[in-house]
Simulated scan of single mutants.
Amino acid sequence: MCGRYVLIATEQQIIDHFSLRRLANYQPDYNIPPGQKILNVVQLEDGSNKAVYLHWGLIPSWSKDRGIGNRLINARAETLAEKPSFRAAYRKRRCLIPATGFYEWHRTESGKQPYHIHYPDNRLFAFAGLWEHWENETETVYSCTIVTTGADAKIASIHDRMPVVIRPEQYLDWLDKKSEAVDVLSFDQSAAYHDMRLTPVSNRVNNPAHNDADCLT
């Protein structure tokens, strides 16, 4: 799964990397938890990219209770086309979720050891994401989820799941609004994760209230 991640790129780096016209209200974040608004990149009708902030925890449009989002922070790549919670978004509302790293916890005899998983230079990459629009009589919520898949050999040493990473040359394929038949399992995760590092960090990251460079120590 992916339940906490990092985005510490500069505003200009994000604009350039994702071909954005502008990026408002951005602040680097060392410890991003579910349940808050996170940066997403979506494709507009004219084919351009736009930065939006969506609630992390997908709320299906048909749900009567927005609380379902607490259980849908991740979506399994293997069943996106089948699950009622995700299949419509998979066809029509795919997005990119910018990141510079993510955290995973490995169970040991002495407790859970957190790892920061990232490229050596902490360069930008993107998770495959889905987004949804939900509303009732009193509120409207735009929400998202991070797509995960079975871990490759490297990540499997600490966890059995990992987020699907979309490489830059594949961004347009994933975002393409004209295509409803994008096979998420066709994106080569061995290539995407090849250069990533697994760096053990302190338990400071366990508390989502901690949001500073010490989370990566």
Rank of each mutant, 00 (worst) to 15 (best):
T140D: 04
F86T: 00
D173W: 03
S110Y: 11
D212F: 01
S202G: 15
C144M: 04
E135N: 14
R161E: 03
I15R: 09
E132S: 14
K64Y: 09
I68P: 03
H17C: 12
Q170F: 05
S143G: 03
A9C: 10
N70P: 00
I155F: 03
W56F: 01
H159R: 01
M162L: 06
D46H: 10
R76N: 08
S110V: 13
A192S: 09
E169P: 02
R22I: 06
L39P: 01
P28Y: 00
L72A: 02
R167K: 14
K112A: 10
A213Y: 08
Y30S: 03
K50T: 05
V6K: 05
D29F: 01
P60H: 03
H116W: 15
V205L: 05
Q170M: 09
R161T: 03
I59V: 14
L130Y: 00
L96E: 06
N136V: 06
K112E: 08
V182D: 01
D29K: 09
V147R: 04
G3M: 05
D212M: 01
L130E: 00
F127G: 02
V6S: 09
S48M: 11
T199D: 10
R93Y: 02
W56R: 05
T199Y: 06
A156N: 13
L80V: 03
A181D: 15
P84K: 08
H194A: 15
R21P: 00
R94C: 00
T100S: 12
